[in-house]
Simulated assay, not measured.
Amino acid sequence: MRKFLILGLLSFLVAISLYAQESSHFDNRAVVLLDRMSEVIGELNSCSFKLNASSDKVLPEVGLVKEFFKHQIQFVGPDKMHIQTNAPTNNHFYWYNGDIMMYYSLTYNHYGFIETPDNIIETIDMVNAEYGVDFPAADFFYPTFTDDLIDHSDTIHYLGLVNVDGVDCHHIIAVGPEQHLQLWLRNDTFTLPHRFVILEKSENYTLQYEGIFSEWMINPYLPESIFDFVVPESAKRLTIVPKSKAN
């Protein structure tokens, strides 16, 4: 038995060595941490967090302009989601209860509904593809996060421990042909994301998107009632049209 264990261990070490040689441009320390983050997020029953974000957009008259957003987000797996967003020109909300996605603009006092799949990930995919809605930090909640990052990157580096906003974090950088990502994961039991910066190359500019997470709550009790929307009497109904039928 001992002989077989030794031979098995040697085979395993050889396999790891060959994998490291073939994948030397993907730092194993970074990959392990990214997998750890995804596993923890994937096993959550519920969560709540805040995300302060900034995003570049291009205006024809002046070029790059930076906009700032504040998001409050709650999830209950697999089919409950609530997002409140304070944006420069439109403070708005999304509710998802497993059947429909409900939208309400506090700024303009109008609302609309979208029929959706019965889980959060498929709903995010569908609403993004058909209606052009980007959900804040949604990529972090995909179980394939690490594999997707590897597929879109030429190299992934682990730069060690750094202090960010008073929080000890693992600093990871992923560099690809169209995107450059810096990610700071909390150096604690849960290894949750603390901050990220994404640089995306466009035709004439490099656009930056930055997010800072705070007030993470792990598996909190979130009443089902917060995922349903009660329409204000004065609100106007919108017909939300898919991009394929907009023209």
Rank of each mutant, 00 (worst) to 15 (best):
F145E: 12
D147H: 13
F140K: 11
C169Y: 09
D147Q: 12
H171W: 12
H152K: 09
D139Y: 03
D139M: 13
G166I: 12
V175E: 06
E130T: 01
V175K: 12
V167F: 05
N163I: 14
V175L: 06
D154T: 04
H171D: 10
D147F: 05
I172K: 11
I173N: 07
V175N: 07
I173K: 03
F145L: 11
G166V: 07
T146M: 07
H157W: 14
L149A: 10
G132Q: 09
V167C: 04
V164P: 05
G132M: 07
F140H: 11
V175T: 10
A137C: 06
G166E: 04
V133F: 08
H152P: 03
E130Y: 01
H152S: 14
C169W: 04
H170M: 02
H170W: 03
Y158F: 15
P136D: 06
N128P: 04
D165N: 12
I150L: 12
A129E: 04
F141L: 05
V167E: 14
P143I: 12
N128I: 08
V162W: 04
Y142C: 09
T144W: 09
H170F: 03
G166W: 02
D148C: 00
V175W: 12
T146Y: 13
T146I: 02
Y131V: 00
I156P: 01
D151V: 01
F145N: 08
A129Y: 03
I150C: 07
A129F: 10
I156E: 03
L161P: 10
G160V: 11
F140A: 10
I150K: 15
F141S: 08
S153T: 06
H152D: 14
I173H: 02
G160F: 09
L149I: 02
T155A: 09
T146P: 01
T146C: 08
P143G: 06
E130C: 01
D151T: 07
F141D: 08
